[in-house]
Amino acid sequence: MSWWKRALPGDLVHFPGSQEVDHYLYTPGLHGLKAAELLKAGKVPGMLCGDQLILPPKTFCPDERLSEGEVVEVEGPFIAALVTVIREDFYGRKLEEPQVLAFITAQGAIGGYIGVVKASPGDVYPGMRVRPVFRPEEERTGAITDIAFWEPVAD
């Protein structure tokens, strides 16, 4: 190390910059397009690989031929398999009302969706039954956010 490489931190320059594009447009893909149409119709999409139901649809099945799956409507029943309660936002600020986030799967399915469950943190538990509540039809775009939230179903 030569002598000049002992600068104090204050002697070092930091250069601000950013990395941005104007925006990205992500295409839904082959089966994503069919899934988008189901979502717009207020239905939860899934994929059948043989008898196995897989969420979300992914075009190809995890088999040795990477064969094509079939996009289908999933009627449920839906289960919040994992639940967590969020109390702070990105910046560590306390939320006014805690939010319940869950990993939601369907009976007998592999995989699932992440969604907000409209319920108070004390009332949720892993394995509870839920059902989707869609946005009004005119607001739907074919994205997963067309499901506004999930609500508990009384057993």
Partner: peptide, 29 residues
């Protein structure tokens, strides 16, 4: 493309502070 159902529009925004390091700091000064 713009009309495709399920198309997702997203704008990322990542801010950085690039360290110039010992040699470049002196060069910039």
């Amino acid at each position: 493309l713009e009309r495709l159902p399920g198309i997702i529009r997203y704008k990322p925004s990542a801010r950085y502070l690039f360290a110039a390091g010992q040699a470049l700091s002196r060069f910039l000064k």
